[in-house]
Amino acid sequence: MQLINKDLVGLEGVSAEEIAHILDSAKSMKDYLQQGVKKMPQLQNKSIVTLFYENSTRTKMSFDLAGKYLGASMSAIAASSSSIQKGETLLDTGRTLEARGIDIIIMRHPMSGAPEFLGRNISARVINAGDGMHEHPTQALLDMYTMQEKLGRLAGLKVAIIGDILHSRVARSNLHGLKTMGADVTLCGPGTLMPVEIEKTGVKVTYDIREAVKDADVVMGLRLQLERQKSGLLPSLREYNELFGVNSEVLKLAKPHALIMHPGPVNRGVEMDTDIIDHDRSVITEQVTNGVAVRMALLYIMTRKKEDIV
């Protein structure tokens, strides 16, 4: 099965069949990894570039490993690289990469829509590794993979996403993916960090963390950029933690088997207390492991030609 669109810029508009297919393939990839297979031939004629205009350790490394395990030739361009520093436009950078025969560009950019803009203008396939406040589809895919693996399903799950929703591309991608897969999503955060009219997507919005977490199957925290306080969006980190921090009191309201998730890196004691991060129901480190498998699956699917598919 192929993905319908050339690029993966977000999960908005991606069908349930496509998501299920990626998650199924990720399962096979994870099986290989667990057997210790770290050198596979599927992508050995493929050339992949990570084009990161923002710092990233986790996502970039995860993609790098995914590509390498499948035998792709991986190269990296960072924002500090010379042509970007010299003021080369995104379009010119993209066209230069294309001229070198790159198959897939994995891109992170601080501005929303940049991967979609680039993808529209070049023939190489673009995977969004996070754009501004828009989407981070592979993070949501690995989150959904983790939920499905641990809880056996996505449909009907009650997922509470808590924190800075406004600036979060992780929240937006999860919202779209989870809605498509039939989960119930509740968003919770301060009014200053809640996107307007987001409830029109069919999610619930609450400002009360207790209401959000009540009977939840999944409690997902989001990273709070500490500079939000300085820009006038929050009175103090202390009050943020008091009103919106996930702690053991709040967690009691969730279902007994509820998963604790976070895309990382975590501000301990701000959006989540330490005992929650290290809780036995926390799957934060497994999210990282699953990220490699999900990205392997995606790279595999996106490099197949139609005739390759049996």
């Binding site: 406040m133 937006r172 997507t201």
Partner: peptide, 13 residues
């Protein structure tokens, strides 16, 4: 414009 679409697109409204 700040509204549903700015929220969806992640563009500042």
């Amino acid at each position: 414009n700040e509204g549903y679409y700015s929220s969806m697109l992640g563009l500042r409204g």
